[in-house]
């Protein structure tokens, strides 16, 4: 007896009606300006905005991940001072809005027009001039990255705690030191728990970079706002931004699958299939069926 799912049919009908309404609105309401969107997608300012958005996302996530690992390891340190510093960091950066932090860093670049790298109260090795266009981008990267570090720290910590304590004991008993145990044994296993929420954070960061437009960073959202201010075609411009954000998110989601698969090594007896492998498998089965029935 085939199983019947009457509610699936009802739900499908509702979705179809809604889609039809949306399509009708697209077709009849010229305010969307679909004609313009295609032309705008690949214009110079939009593409520059996309590149800057990608750069901001990459840099902020890079800082966030490195910082997150350091903070998580610090948080689990047997040294109470080290652990407390990490706790305080997370407390501050998680407890204040990222938009406020963004403005704070931007303002700081005015407070400290020269940022230098060197020994405290000693000689300076490198000096950055902060008060320029670069200052806004730097402030954005710092603000987003440092804020992300606090969230990543908690994700990494959860990952570390998910690894059985027996693993660290076995590694310690071989003579590995604490950081060696972390790097060689615990973190690689923690990755299985760390990667999925990190993918989530990256996608979230992609969209959060749009806040940088508030401190005059012309990333994707900033770019379409500028175009909209000139042309008054606000909705088509916003839809252009949406299209790009969606496209990048899609690519990231696919990338995440492969990263997860990489870190699943040894966790299961066999690795999950990639969509291509599944497709090939299905095709093979289908071909056998066809061959079987034609005989």
């Amino acid at each position: 007896m085939p199983v019947r799912h009457p509610w699936r049919w009802v739900a499908s009908a509702v979705v179809l009606v809604l889609l039809a309404m949306l399509a009708h609105s697209f077709a009849t309401n010229s305010n969307y300006g679909f004609g313009i969107i295609g032309g705008l997608l690949f214009t110079r300012p939009v593409l520059d905005g996309v590149l800057l958005t990608l750069g901001l996302t990459g840099a902020a996530m890079g800082i966030g991940i490195v910082l997150g690992v350091v903070l998580a390891v610090m948080r689990l340190s047997p040294n109470p001072l080290v652990s407390w510093v990490s706790w305080a960091y997370i407390w501050f950066f998680r407890g204040t809005p990222v938009l406020v932090q963004l403005f704070l860093w931007y303002q700081l670049s005015y407070l400290f027009p020269h940022l230098s790298l060197g020994i405290p109260f000693g000689p300076r090795f490198v000096t950055f001039n902060t008060n320029s266009v670069i200052a806004a981008v730097t402030a954005a990267i710092l603000a987003l990255g440092l804020n992300e570090g606090a969230y990543m720290a908690e994700i990494v910590r959860a990952g570390i705690l998910s690894v059985d304590a027996g693993q660290s004991e076995a590694a310690s008993s071989l003579g590995m030191r604490r950081l060696q145990v972390m790097r060689r044994v615990v973190l690689p296993q923690a990755m299985r728990v760390i990667v999925p929420p990190t993918g989530n954070e990256t996608i979230s960061m992609l969209k959060t970079t749009s806040l940088a437009s508030t401190i005059a960073v012309i990333e994707l959202f900033g770019a379409v706002q500028q175009i909209a201010a000139r042309t008054y075609q606000v909705i088509p411009d916003l839809l252009v931004a949406c299209a790009w954000y969606l496209a990048i998110t899609t690519v990231m989601t696919i990338g995440q699958f492969y990263v997860e698969r990489h870190f699943a090594r040894g966790a299961q007896r066999s690795l999950p299939l990639t969509p291509f492998q599944k497709l090939r498998g299905n095709l093979a089965v289908w071909r056998i069926r066809v061959a079987g029935s034609s005989r």
């Binding site: 027996g166 004991e169 076995a170 590694a171 310690s172 870190f263």
Partner: peptide, 21 residues
């Protein structure tokens, strides 16, 4: 750690590193 490296330990539940061959 150096002194531990001179002492081998075998556990009830093996604790092999699952991510390594």
């Amino acid at each position: 750690a150096r002194r531990r490296s001179e002492i081998g330990m075998v556990f009830q539940h093996f604790h092999l590193f699952p991510h390594l061959t």
